[in-house]
């Protein structure tokens, strides 16, 4: 795991901070608020012990989404205000269109990045422990989800075996898209059946070891919620408030409602 000062904070505090920071961004449509937020997030990265290259690698699906937004918005947005920059064929690209598109793209990055930071610096076991101990989440839910989460990698090899077995049985789709869809569906169903059976066996084994026995649980790994965690939440709230304030003062603020 990561060694940054902030990476070591309580997982629940990190998750709470991510939510605190992202939520105000959803409230406005202007490009300035998310730009400021993104700047703060990028400045915070080293404190989480994360290298920019690592984050960039984890965030590449976002770039795909952003490119999609940019193209769709530039070509099809209804609001064509501002001065015309170019008009290739039937499309008219204006400054207004570009501003809106840029705002959306920045929002996608600014909202998603805190989540990426939290999950890149948090061990799933620690998160489940902290959810139970500090956020008082039911152990049945948190530990159960953790156990289920651990089985996900098995599904990849299971899918491969199921697909190979279907070919061995003489079933393939060739180039027919409908047959492909049908084959995909039947393989997915078999995967689901297998996952349920395995989940049932796991649940039995967990019950056999006293899970959900009604006895009060003790904790082998203690997660503490310290003053530093409170500080993280407070600073995050202040930073997010600052970004909003600057955007309002400079007149860019554009609330999503009203």
């Amino acid at each position: 795991m990561s060694t940054g000062v902030l990476a070591r904070r309580n997982p629940v505090a990190k998750l709470g901070a991510a939510l605190l920071f992202s939520l105000p961004l959803v409230a406005t449509l202007d490009p300035v608020t998310p730009a400021l937020a993104l700047l703060i997030e990028l400045l915070a990265l080293p404190f989480f012990g994360l290298r920019y290259a690592v984050v960039a690698r984890r965030a590449w699906p976002l770039a795909l989404a952003a490119a999609g937004i940019l193209v769709t918005m530039t070509l099809f947005a209804a609001d064509r205000s501002g001065s015309v920059l170019a008009s290739p064929g039937p499309f008219v690209i204006t400054t207004g269109v570009l501003r809106d598109a840029l705002g959306l793209v920045l929002r996608v990055f600014a909202v998603a990045l805190p989540g990426i930071i939290v999950f890149a610096t948090t061990d799933p076991t620690d998160l489940a422990d902290a959810l139970v101990q500090n956020a008082k989440a039911p152990a049945r839910f948190a530990i159960g989800a953790l156990a289920a989460f651990r089985m996900i990698p098995l599904l990849t090899s299971e899918w491969q075996m199921l697909s190979l077995a279907r070919r061995a049985r003489g079933i393939d789709a060739g180039r027919n898209p409908l047959a492909k869809l049908h084959l995909f569906g039947s393989t997915a169903f078999a995967l689901l059946v297998g996952a349920l059976r395995r989940g049932g066996r796991l649940a039995t084994a967990m019950d056999a070891r006293g899970f959900d026995s009604g006895l009060p649980r003790t904790f082998a790994r203690i997660q503490k919620f310290s003053p530093a965690d409170v500080a993280l939440l407070v600073v995050t709230a202040l930073a997010s408030g600052a970004a909003l304030t600057i955007s309002i003062l400079t007149g860019f603020f554009n609330p999503i409602i009203g």
Partner: peptide, 11 residues
């Protein structure tokens, strides 16, 4: 440790 936590063994 999982079973020990479940059955409330002292930390």
């Amino acid at each position: 440790a999982f079973g020990l936590e479940n059955t409330g063994v002292r930390a």
